[in-house]
Design a protein around this nucleic acid. Structure first.
Lengths: 143, 143
DNA sequence: CCTAGGTAGGTGTATATACACTCCAGCCGT
DNA sequence: ACGGCTGGAGTGTATATACACCTACCTAGG
């Protein structure tokens, strides 16, 4: 019963802009990391663990700004690959995640690829407007 | 064989920042839209269709900056709810997506909720630093 | 007409994401 | 010691996301 709403305001949707930007950047990082068998999210978790040392799931999730339960699933994949393991803890409720040797090697090996992607995005943000207006598709033109 | 890599550079990862930001913003929009039974992504698609009229999947995906196959899945959910349908086309390969009456009503009904979320993010970006450094969790403090 | 190639779209599979709910372990008061 | 409470973590379910692959349809050349 209300056709007077001005839907054109939706063109400036912050959520769409943020998601679109994240998707584009993620596709680039995934592309660079693919030869190493790592996804962008997985790289983030491994890097966070390398920098912070063994960390319980809840704390790590907060650090990364994602849901605790999401990190649980991501950690399961990383464990399956042998890149992280559960560290012992005095408090049996905690299950600190710890980078394994294989995980550290994987991370260090993938670092140059990560750096490449990171530098590419640096150059984009320098060249383009400060807002995050990456035209759709421009991200993949590197191939 | 290389422990000399400076992993601390990963603290400034553009991909993590973009994803973290998108997750936070999405959680807010989802929270506002939840009473209407809509997700942020779904709202985006409905709004895009309302503004552009019937559009083939590929074109709409480009407009929204997401993978064509991703839009296929999203569209399936929207169709299931009766909010979009396949419009006829001369070219039988194309399957233009079209907003249904129910879809338009759903969209218009959810618009105020969307606007609320949009305005909230406006205020954040005005108040905070221009980069997108939302401290983890601050997004949910509105509850 | 008929086939080769290109275009529009869907499927299989895997991961990412989050909410609601459940479970287990420690803690604390009586 | 027990019983409830709280905190840390996992599960069930649904959607989002993308790549590799597959199918259907048009169109141009023969």
């Amino acid at each position: 019963m209300d056709a007077t709403v001005d839907l054109s305001a939706c063109r400036g949707c912050h959520c769409l802009a943020a998601r679109r930007h994240a998707r584009a950047v993620t596709r680039l990082f995934d592309e660079k990391l693919r030869p190493h068998g790592l996804r962008a999210t997985q790289f983030s978790v491994l890097a966070a663990l390398a920098l912070a040392g063994p960390t319980p799931v809840t704390g790590l999730a907060e650090k990364l700004g994602l849901e605790r339960t999401t990190l649980t699933r991501i950690a399961a994949v990383l464990e399956r690959h042998g890149w992280v393991s559960i560290a012992p803890s005095e408090d049996a409720r905690e299950r600190p995640l710890r980078l394994t040797g294989a995980g550290r090697r994987k991370l260090v090996g993938a670092f140059p690829a990560w750096k490449e992607a990171q530098d590419l995005v640096d150059r984009w943000t320098d060249a383009q407007d400060p807002a995050d207006r990456y035209p759709a598709g421009s991200v993949r033109q590197t191939r």
